[in-house]
């Protein structure tokens, strides 16, 4: 009975998100019919890619419980992009750029995993520390200067559009979400993640390798942030040392809006995907109506509070 009730949480959030999304779309239709074309879809997906990748990693880390959170994702995006570009500058063959970015991200994530597992630091503290270190290092080693020199074939990938869908979204974000969804729903690993998020002690008792899973998830979150760094390179054409600014808070917002419980064990990646699209659609809609951007942060924040309260209230009604 209890598990059944818990399953209703994400479903409720997902319905709520889809409803809100429809409202935004309908609202736009009424206020500004001209936005309905393929270009708008392309724009929305283009600006969703980085947040989607980072939000996925954030969501998985939180889902696995143990007070899991990754505040360093923004710093990881910046630093892995910078490491990649500095590598090219130092004579690394540009062909390796994608590998270097993702690998750098994975290693930065692995460091988080080690701090959490090996040193038993609380995730909030460990990743707050690495947030300062990663984002600070990216700025300090470049002195703030953008790093140019992205090879043109990478730009072709980063700025390409196929059937109205940006190529990075098609080839990176969608497969990542599909794989993660598959992993969670139909593999032992997925069940482990939910189990340890729901109750870590009993997960350990039944022999789930909790530490190993957690370490891999932090590394994965780092690798996804590294991939987001790569997307930023391929899209902007240069490495910006502050490209990941605010992503820690935005990804947290997406994961929470997407119905992942902050205590872990509840939620899914489908909700995160929907939340990212909702957030970007909302921003796009407000921009298309030329509403002052100061309202964006407030509306997103208010939305987060609203969804959380709705979730709480529905739980109270049911019990």
């Amino acid at each position: 009975m209890k598990t059944l009730r818990n399953l209703q949480g994400p479903a409720l959030t997902l319905t709520l998100l889809c409803g809100l999304w429809l409202i935004v779309i309908l609202g736009l239709l009424v206020l500004k019919p001209s936005v309905y074309n393929l270009g708008t879809v392309t724009t929305i997906l283009q600006f969703s890619t980085i947040l989607a990748l980072v939000g996925l990693g954030q969501g998985l880390v939180i889902l696995a419980g143990g007070s899991g959170i990754d505040l360093s994702v923004g710093g990881t995006v910046s630093l892995s992009a910078i490491v990649g570009m500095l590598g090219v500058k130092l004579g690394l063959p540009p062909v390796l750029l994608p590998v270097v970015c993702i690998l750098a991200g994975a290693m930065l994530g692995a460091l988080n995993g080690w701090l959490v597992n090996g040193l038993a630091l609380l995730p909030f503290i460990a990743t707050l520390g690495t947030f300062f270190v990663y984002s600070g290092t990216a700025l300090a080693i470049t002195g703030g200067a953008a790093q140019a020199g992205v090879p043109s074939w990478l730009l072709l990938w980063g700025r390409g559009v196929a059937m109205g869908i940006p190529v990075p979204f098609l080839t990176l974000a969608i497969p990542c979400f599909a794989l993660a969804g598959l992993l969670l729903l139909s593999t032992a690993w997925g069940r482990w993640i939910y189990a340890m998020g729901f109750n870590e002690r009993s997960a350990r008792l039944v022999g789930i390798p909790v530490d190993r899973v957690r370490f891999i998830l932090y590394s994965l979150s780092g690798a996804l942030a590294g991939a987001a760094g790569l997307v930023s390179l391929a899209w902007l054409g240069s490495g910006r040392p502050n490209i990941g600014q605010n992503l820690e808070l935005e990804s947290l917002t997406a994961a929470m809006l997407g119905g992942i419980a902050i205590t872990g064990g509840r939620g899914g990646v489908g909700g995160v995907f929907a939340a990212v699209l909702l957030l970007v659609t909302l921003k796009t809609g407000l921009l298309q109506l030329n509403i002052n951007t100061v309202w964006q942060v407030g509306i997103v924040g208010g939305l987060l509070v609203f969804v959380l309260l709705a979730d709480r209230l529905s739980q109270r009604w049911r019990s």
Binding site: L249, T253, I262, T263, V297, G302, L304, V305, L308
Partner: peptide, 18 residues
């Protein structure tokens, strides 16, 4: 509202900034 403090204040951060 019984919202976890970190997420609740994150939402309010946006509202206060506006």
């Amino acid at each position: 509202g019984r919202v976890p403090a970190i997420v609740g204040t994150l939402g309010l951060l946006g509202v206060y900034r506006t």
